[in-house]
Write a protein that binds this DNA or RNA. Structure first.
Lengths: 212, 212, 212, 212
DNA sequence: GATGAATGAGGCTTCATTCAT
DNA sequence: CATGAATGAAGCCTCATTCAT
């Protein structure tokens, strides 16, 4: 019976950690890293500072955890979209862009953490943030290399940066607008995908993407 | 009569202000807004806290001043490049991208202020920062509208964001690399310009840009 | 279960607050509001700045708390004296004067806070300070109105001010003298009471106070 | 001619000093000692900090000067009133009260400096302030001693304090009210004088004051 | 494990005062 | 003499982190 109790305890423990983590995401996304305080987070989580420091080494630590969780979830979303897009690399890339936009649009607090509120936080955190973006960029870069022969000559590293940069900036600006006065997330995704696909020299038309 | 020497004094005054301002740019660019402290700035400027608060209302104020100066200088650089590029709009846009990259490559501290080290600035400062980028974006948007008929259909607002986003992100990533292991700024600019011009559906080849 | 010991903790908490508060009273009474610094107070209380700001919002806040506690205790002392003085209003008023003098003589630091060390407190604090005196004055005014028919005609509002002003100033001057070269607090109280009772036209002799 | 120039210069010098001094009175009376800043004062005087420190040793110094000037002018007003009141001591004392009230009512900023804003400013200034009030109190005390035989027995020192305390407090409270909702200064003065004269056991009726 | 009181380093800012022009 | 830029000491306050209960 002991291990069962232990099991439940572990579950509770993890649950509490998650509650703190998601409260932190909310506060960080809304206030930014510096304006967020540990008391704020624990209040939002219905917990206590003591608990906070039991589950996380320090403030930086939750932020990193938030970023990492975000990275995992984003990667999962992208991979799922890519897998569902069939074998055509351009189609995959388009699907990935759309998945990214949808993900960020549905998780605006996390989007803010990734795009806005995590710059300039010092070596450690900047590294974690870049990790997320680098992963993404690297994925794009691979796609580009796979298509190398069929595209105009270009520097894949730079162009991959352009690809993700254009997406993030466009989403950022879109998020800044009041929800009722901005186009749909799908329209946004389409526009970004079009720009990027044309940018790499691939056909930009969504309906033609698998045709010969 | 000594106290009438208003002229030289005004010069010295302005000089001191500039010294503080550029010291602030340096610190902000290197450490970020939050990690930068007023004592750091005044030490770097060879000045004193008292002087600092004589010339600027507060820390936020210098940052805004830095950002504004940066915005002005950047706009000047872009405009000069555009003016020199002749009447072809695509040529102008290409020239602007190259000027932007060159400017940021030559002023890496200011680039960092604008792109990286600016998280959690609070409404006011974030607005000033965005202003700089918005101005830029708006310029691009105008270019796009001017070319409307000759380009594939696209949402100019979104595409303008993509345009500047791709540039900033690519420059950012370029700046992160050690100076000796990165391609030349010109190569970078060329690659970005290529991507962007293709992205909007214009010819991407630099040599064709002025032909009818 | 340890963390359930809420009772003892609450006691300790209140004790700590009280210690800070009374240390503050001491410093404020000795140095005045402006010359008193938070570090001084916490040192006197054997506490820390952090704790100070845990218990009080800011320096103004402690001062207000000190003033309010003082007001309560003073009112209690006056009311007790009045209650013990029997039904004769003049006797009550005399008793109140004596109680006031005794209270201030026994709490010289608080007396200083109330009477002397309180310049330039800003609207908010000055209002709290005046509140204490106003309460007192209002009490006197009520007494005067109760006696209206039996006294020479007078403006009760002004006369009430005179009543309390004479007491505070006399006490202040008395406190300024070195303890060994001043008359007894009782003598002082008697003299003030005599002056004030004569001032309102009531019999000033203590022994006659209850006769018809 | 030289001495004439010197003369004029001395005049100008004195004039500038006076301008600073009266500007200081205004600011001190309105803001209090601590909230008043040297820049504020010099701006109000149309002068400069440099000048300020030429004419006064420091901030404390102007405050003391303001207080001293106030003391002189008040003493002059009281003495004039006393001289005009004829030989009857009670009449003189009544006249002095009325003159005091009138003076303070006509110079509310100075009244604030004397009564409110100069407490708790440290040894030196407190001494200057007390000087002003002590002078006044001493005058009252002398009157009391002159009347000794004709009055009920009382402690002249304490009673003199009561006398001035009642006046200052009543005036203070009167000044706090909005100008349009307070009784006339004369009414105030009459009420205070009545209280005080009764308080020392002298006849309180103004019209009977010179009768045998 | 949970709690929240306690700590103190360190940031921002003000302002009296000085002194070169 | 006038001016106002320059200085820096000192105060208030925040908040990440620790630790006794």
């Amino acid at each position: 019976m002991a291990y069962r109790t232990t099991h439940k305890m572990a579950e509770r423990k993890e649950a509490r950690r998650q509650k703190l983590l998601s409260a932190a995401v909310g506060i960080f996304g809304r206030k930014g890293y510096h304006a967020a305080t540990v008391p704020m987070i624990v209040r939002a989580a219905g917990s206590s500072v003591g608990s906070f420091y039991f589950y996380f080494r320090n403030k930086e630590d939750v932020f990193a955890a938030a970023l990492e969780s975000l990275g995992r979830r984003m990667a999962a979303a992208l991979n799922a979209a890519i897998a569902a897009a069939g074998p055509s690399v351009p189609a995959q890339m388009r699907a990935a862009v759309k998945a990214l936009v949808r993900f960020l649009a549905e998780n605006p607090e996390e989007a803010r953490i990734l795009i806005v509120e995590s710059s300039g936080l010092g070596k450690r955190l900047e590294a974690v943030r870049r990790q997320v973006i680098e992963n993404h960029t690297r994925g794009v870069e691979q796609g580009l290399r796979a298509l190398a022969g069929q595209l105009p000559p270009m520097d894949p590293a730079v162009v991959a940066s352009c690809w993700v940069g254009s997406a993030y900036e466009a989403v950022y600006r879109w998020l800044e607008r009041a929800p009722h006065e901005r186009p749909s997330a799908d329209h946004l995704a389409e526009a970004i995908a079009g720009f990027n696909l044309r940018g790499i020299g691939a056909s930009a038309k969504p309906d033609e993407r698998r045709r010969p």
